[in-house]
Amino acid sequence: MPFPILRTPVVVLSEIISILEPNETVTASFCSKNFKRLLKNQYQQMKPLMWAICMIDFENDRRVIIVKSGIEANVLSAVHISKFNESTSKVVEINGYKIEFSPEYPILYFEDQELGSKWIVDYVTDLLNIDVRGLAIGRSSAWTVDWINKRQEKPLNRFALFKPTSNNSNADESMDYVLKNVRSSDFIGINEDVSDNYRFNGKLGPVKELAISRNGYWVTCDNLMNFDAIAIYIGRSRLTVSILNLFLRHWRAGGSPRLEYLEVFFENGTVFENTFDGDLEIVRTNEVGTYPVSYGEPVVIRNCYRVQRTDGIMALVDCDRQRFYMIVQHEKASH
């Protein structure tokens, strides 16, 4: 016999809803229009949820994920109608869309893949009354950046751009559009292949952490100066020590004031003769620099160099054939 949940007292209903996991909440909302309305009203009256909605739109992977207490849960997926299996017995039709209820989360089938992505995000955010906090996309999904900016006032917390598994075109155009328009407060991660001729002429940030993971060969000194981030990691860079001297001059003059950590990995190694330009007044020191990077164990540099900004702020720098490190000590020198 079905349980008459809609006739349950409000206090009991609130307790039932409060213990539902994110995927259970979204799945339950498809039971009926009345129950969806009940859930929506409940979440609008509750304190802001400590849940984070993340949108994934990468090639054929289109999902909404909810992160709760650090644990990710898939709650809704959009799949092209060509993947629909007529023999599936757990398929129903709602508002003209075919929906399959898998053991974990519902799957919606769409003819228009962009429409499908928008639909599942709108559905979950409207149901739970919270914004999108994370976005992970591929090259062909650059449109999502502007769409997110227009649909909500708050910026993303985390953003990631991944290179496609196939060698599609429009890499330079997509990269430029994303870098000029993305807004993310905590993290921006870029892993994309662009042409050797690509140049980014703009500003990026403010953000806490910027990681251009494995394809940073396009990054110039001007880019570094215009990246507004607390921590910056550049992989496969073609920067040289001479170019980094220019960045250090920029920093000594007060540029990049929020920077706390910079790590540059040289693509093909570089020659470092343990010398910096004399006007930088860099001196050898036995101080130890430590920075708690997000991607692993804290970075520690020893037997490095010290450079002082015009306002007294110190930084420790180190360089070998593979990497350049800079750790800013945001306390003014006592002498």
Rank of each mutant, 00 (worst) to 15 (best):
Q113T: 15
L108C: 08
T27A: 05
S29N: 06
F35Y: 15
T27M: 01
N129Y: 07
Q44T: 11
N60G: 01
T8E: 02
R37P: 01
I19C: 11
P106N: 06
F101K: 06
P103A: 09
P106L: 04
V67G: 00
G138P: 03
M55D: 00
L20T: 02
D57C: 14
A78D: 10
S32H: 08
V75D: 03
K36Y: 09
Q113I: 15
N34C: 04
L128Y: 03
N23S: 13
I81G: 00
Y123K: 04
I66H: 03
Y109P: 08
E114H: 03
N34W: 11
L6S: 08
K33S: 12
S89K: 14
L6I: 10
N95G: 07
A136Q: 12
Q42D: 15
S117V: 13
N60S: 11
E15I: 02
T27L: 05
K47T: 13
D122T: 06
L20M: 14
D131Y: 01
I120K: 04
S117K: 04
T27V: 02
I137H: 02
S140Y: 07
E24C: 05
V79T: 13
P48K: 09
D57R: 08
L135T: 09
D122F: 06
R7I: 00
I137M: 00
D122E: 15
D126L: 05
D61Q: 10
S102V: 14
D57S: 15
I66Q: 04
F30W: 02
I120E: 03
E93F: 06
L6Q: 10
S87N: 13
E15C: 02
C31E: 03
V67K: 11
L38R: 14
P22W: 04
E93M: 14
S117G: 12
L127Y: 01
